[in-house]
Design a binder for these strands. Structure first.
Lengths: 343, 343
DNA sequence: CCAGTCATTCAAACCGCTTTGGATTTCATC
DNA sequence: GATGAAATCCAAAGCGGTTTGAATGACTGG
């Protein structure tokens, strides 16, 4: 069933039928009713390729993600996608995801632009020395950054959590509890967000005249073993920390495992604060959440990023906008006062 | 830059240019060279909407996932997607993901078919009383099932792990170690895979004349707290288990946490076997993996499912094919002989 | 009664590509 | 030198929509 057939059945022109279906005013209500009714009855829906060709709009948003696993194809990305996807489908947009060989990433973006595969893209996981935004500007593809590109804050649209402040507050909480030997298990520090978190941590320490101990700062992909192995290593080391500040629930769970294996108790002997992206399969809820955390829903970020982007596409030429969100600091069971004397 | 402009620059017809670019034989090598060269120089790439309209092929595969979180928008799904995505892009296909309100799921499939949004879809997480395949047959949309639809095994194409056998083997391993009180922490049992796993478990017990204790079988979304809370509950119960069989690494980590909190040691006091989907952010590797597990790469399953589907699309009318994979049984640190006497 | 509006509807062009069905040229063959 | 096959190339017709520009009819006001 296509437009031609439908219009023949109705003894109307394709023009009128198309307009009736798309809500144009120059169609009498009577005809519009007839048309929509018949369309429903015959199960007509416009061929999206044809429509896209005619309108010149792809009605799709692209997400290109390099094949390699680092920091990208992880649960956090998934949750973001879920949020963005909801917004897209509410607005009739498709979400197209390209998993590409790392070397072909740039190529993928160019393809999207020249082949008109999508009307815009979202940049995930900006690095400290980010470059994708330049390419996208060059090829004129609208985009929104999930995170922030250092040095390009005013010229790009982005949505980010205040990473620095979150980790500063978390650090202060630990400091207030009397902890002075605090370990930082951070994400890969070539990523912008991880740098900011580290800065927040260091600032908080510095404000109390403390310096971060390089031995207690580790950075890697935020896996569970990363948390466990490093915590184990530190706890068995010469001058162990009494608290851990962790960049991800997943790694925090690893830390908790290590603490348990050392015969210590989380929240008593060792305090843990983690950032919690509010992943659906890692609920950290309950009356008193398991982990004390800084929380910020990444799914919500996805929704907002999508809204931002769709807005840019609908109103080209508007100024870049940014959304800077604060994380909640939530007290759970994993923190407590620093143990007094040395063991 | 479109085909028309390109052909004018070359003083050739659109036909010839199109053919040259698409590798048709009726073009002299000389012209083909000229064309490809000029195309590269001017950065020409065909508009994908136009091509799709002309060829009638969407060159895209759809994945529709209901908005609700259950069992679907989880890391396992993500990893599957990553695998499938690789295959798609290698074959020039796009992956389009629709996140839809649960009630609109059927509608989403219909839209894909009538609007020609995709050439095929993949069904995720088949339930015990699955129905989507009927709809898809009715509307004539090619599909592959990730998992299996009970009763429709021969009439659908699918890829699945041998869940029953995996859990049977895992159970036998525990039984061989002397465990008789074994707990099962399973996924939601309206899902086909979870039922099969349970069957495997029960079969193994039955073969030794044992019956499963209903108190020791729990089923829910495979979150970390699900593992922890239930393990805690059982361990503090009257007749605690000495071993756990768990459906997911995530929940297994929760179980390990509970074991630790009870002052017990994993692999000594309590044994754990989990299914391991080989998620990238939860590596369970090392010389001796942390968890004894049944392992099957879900990313690989994604690749294969995509291949299957693309094949079906390229060769319509071929018989449905299925891929049944066995999981590896890998001995890690989390299992040991059953503690002899009662505590 | 007629020009002028407004409300409807339509024929045809267009979006950018693929593909059908020739047309033209080349060249060995008879 | 005519002939047929092979090698190239092309004009034009789709694909299935949207949109422009104009036509038609009904209605208003002078």
């Amino acid at each position: 069933m296509n437009l031609k057939e439908l219009s023949q059945r109705l003894e109307l022109s394709q023009t009128t039928v198309s307009r009736a279906l798309n809500g144009y005013p120059e169609v009498s209500e009577e005809t519009r009713r007839r048309v929509t009714e018949m369309a429903a009855r015959l199960g007509y829906a416009p061929n999206s390729q044809a429509r896209r060709l005619a309108t010149g709009r792809a009605m799709a948003i692209g997400h290109v993600i390099p094949r390699s696993i680092h920091e990208m194809m992880n649960p956090i990305f998934l949750e973001f996608i879920a949020g963005a996807g909801e917004t897209y489908s509410m607005h009739g947009y498709d979400m197209i995801i390209s998993v590409v060989e790392d070397a072909l990433e740039e190529d993928a973006y160019r393809q999207i632009a020249t082949r008109k595969k999508a009307d815009g893209v979202i940049i995930h996981g900006p690095a400290h020395d980010e470059h994708r935004h330049k390419l996208l500007k060059e090829i004129g593809l609208p985009f929104v950054v999930h995170g922030r590109i250092p040095g390009a804050e005013t010229e790009t649209s982005w949505i980010d959590m205040n990473n620095r402040r979150a980790f500063e507050r978390a650090s202060n909480l630990l400091l207030d509890l009397g902890h002075t030997r605090i370990a930082l298990l951070n994400g890969l520090e070539h990523m912008d967000f991880a740098r900011r978190r580290r800065t927040g941590f260091e600032n908080a320490l510095a404000a109390r005249g403390l310096a971060a101990d390089p031995q207690l700062m580790r950075s890697a992909d935020m896996t569970e073993p990363f948390g466990c192995d490093n915590a184990m290593d530190m706890l068995n080391g010469g001058n162990p920390p009494t608290a851990f500040l962790v960049s991800s629930m997943i790694s925090a769970i690893g830390v908790a495992r290590a603490v348990g294996q050392c015969g210590l108790t989380v929240g008593k002997d060792i305090s843990i604060i983690t950032h919690d992206d509010a992943l659906s399969f890692l609920p950290n809820s309950g009356e008193v959440p398991i982990f004390t955390c800084t929380r910020s829903s990444v799914r919500y970020a996805g929704q907002k990023a999508a809204e931002l982007l769709l807005n840019m596409i609908a109103n080209p030429g508007t100024e870049p906008t940014a959304l800077h969100m604060d994380a909640e600091l939530i007290i759970g069971q994993s923190t407590g006062p620093a143990p007094s004397g040395p063991a």
